[in-house]
């Protein structure tokens, strides 16, 4: 299955919505850089993310969260926090990577 990555804020770009439209059940989504704002509880995108979590894995890159001063307790439940090493493992364990720029 594909690994989808989203590195843009959902408030600025449409990348997250496009990603969620095309990501198939069983695929994985990694939020990184400004993409991590979608992983925070209480935004207008929380329902979208929660729906995605029903049949996909969702990850968020911890160093990008920390850099932006976002506490990990504020992450939507079900999203897995990962570091750069995990990022590499995710790329290696999926068939290909689709970057939603």
């Amino acid at each position: 299955m594909l690994l989808h990555t989203v590195n843009k804020s959902p408030f600025e770009r449409h990348s997250l919505q496009s990603c969620l439209r095309f990501a198939q059940a069983g695929s994985s989504i990694l939020l990184l850089e400004d993409g991590i704002y979608a992983a925070i509880q209480g935004t207008q995108f929380q329902p979208l993310l929660q729906e995605a979590l029903n049949d996909k894995k969702v990850y968020a890159l911890l160093p990008d969260l920390q850099a932006r001063g976002l506490p990990s307790e504020k992450i939507i439940e079900g999203i897995t926090l990962v570091d750069y090493g995990d990022f590499v493992d995710l790329v290696a364990s999926h068939s290909a990577t689709q970057a939603w720029l």
Partner: peptide, 18 residues
């Protein structure tokens, strides 16, 4: 349509994103 495009993506060995 969305489903066909999603399936196209899943069958690739390499995806280049722009």
């Amino acid at each position: 349509n969305t489903t066909q495009m999603a399936e196209l993506m899943e069958t690739q060995d390499v995806v280049f994103s722009f």
